[in-house]
Design a protein around this nucleic acid. Sequence first.
RNA 1: CGGGGUGUAGCGUAGCCCGGUUAGCGCGCCACGCUGGGGGCGUGGAGGUCGGAGGUUCAAAUCCUCUCACCCCGACCA
Length: 491
Amino acid sequence: MSKKLTKRSEDYSKWYNELVVRADLAENSGVRGMMVIKPYGYAIWEKMQAELDRMFKETGHENAYFPLLIPKSYFSKEASHVDGFAKECAVVTHYRLKNSEDGKEIILDENAKLEEELIIRPTSETIIWDSYRKWIQSYRDLPLLINQWANVLRWEMRTRLFLRTAEFLWQEGHTAHATKMEAVEEAKKMQGVYAEFAENFMAMPVIKGEKSENERFAGALDTYTIEALMQDGRALQAGTSHFLGQNFAKAFDVKYTTKEGKQEYVWATSWGVSTRLMGALVMTHSDDKGLVLPPKLAPIQLVIVPIYKSEDQLDQISEKVEEMMKRIKGLGISVKYDNRTGYKPGWKFAEYELKGVPLRIAIGPRDLENNTVELARRDTLEKDIISIENIEVKINSLLEEIQINIFEKALDYRNGLITEVSDFNEFTEVLENKGGFISAHWDGTPETEDKIKKLTKATIRCIPNDAIDEEGKCVLTGNKSIKRVLFAKAY
RNA sequence: CGGGGUGUAGCGUAGCCCGGUUAGCGCGCCACGCUGGGGGCGUGGAGGUCGGAGGUUCAAAUCCUCUCACCCCGACCA
């Protein structure tokens, strides 16, 4: 294995794959399109989960768990939903295996064929709404605010670690409301929660917006999205929140009695983010030396590497380190002391840079004499000799600074790659040579969007929430347009 | 699913076209020693169903068929 990663400028895709594997986040498994998430990667996911879970609960949601398998008949109840997912469903048809006649292999037992085939959930709307029918009787049962942490399965053609795997982990919120307005508000609120999480914790700037009809979730009336921009100029949909109208309520006959005693269908939302966020995290901040993790999500925030010649020296250093660690841990900072023998300091430095640990302390005999350490930050790669006195305070504020700095950096980069264009030549020129988001007028029709997609591979990522009303002409057709939308090539 | 490519030790690879000793090398791993402020060095050692199945042959990593997986480019998608 070569020591250095492929450079982003050489082959962005290769860089990403190498990095995910080398940094010990995940690896491919023996099962097509499915990955193993390794402990270091999973630790990051757990941090994401913990924070999101906290935010969901703060906004009034409760967790529950629904079955992995969905009867085929449930699945077919909502027509556009079927259209969206049917092509990528795995199906359970039998419940028993047996030895083959020659005893050499295990085969399906045809006597154990299921009466009704079961779909492995690609998303859980249908099975959840089947329960909601029983749970919801009265306006007093609303709103129903439920979230589920689960795995789902979508038989994708081409997969990539974290960005698109056949099985992935996610959360899916499913809410039911008495009024349309309340459901729309809920969907928008959760878009806001996602945006806040992305920006404050992942340090990943996102654009909040609405999906065009073409890009909407199967079965949704409106899809609210957060869109991020990766370092190769391609956009990544990082989270979506859907206003589902009464589609699922009607499909599953979920009605409630109003105060006035009338029967009404409920209004629904669903919203989700997945392990894809891990891919987004990697591609937003990392560099040619490896991961760059935001301190708020880094499993290890500070690593301490001793530099020594003799056992004696190591003992002295360790003593100093123990004392220092106590103070640092006291501030809730996660710190690892890597006193493994057999790895040289230089090796360890490179290793922790690869893994994106935000701060690194090196401490050797020279430091013992001066009561100092060498403190290096991952984001800028800057190193400083600092005093051990009150080091925990310095570290704490530096972690905060790094969190802000990588966000600002990503934001500058992203803002530099939003380009307003006024005609189609300019559109294709910017798309090919610069990349990023293209802000352009669009006549609002799916046909035009399709044509642009066919011609350029760019899609409408979103109609930004903050788009200003502005008369203009559609970049392709010249028809009237009232606001700009964001196009990009997307993951 | 269409086009192209690749599977040889944990990882990266040579050998394959043109079949023929014990399948070679680098990294990693284990032991010992020298080392230690940016992936250090030496000595010794372990590790292989050559992706899998079948076939051709006196003989297969090498030729043929099927199959599986992965990578790149398209269509599909969180």
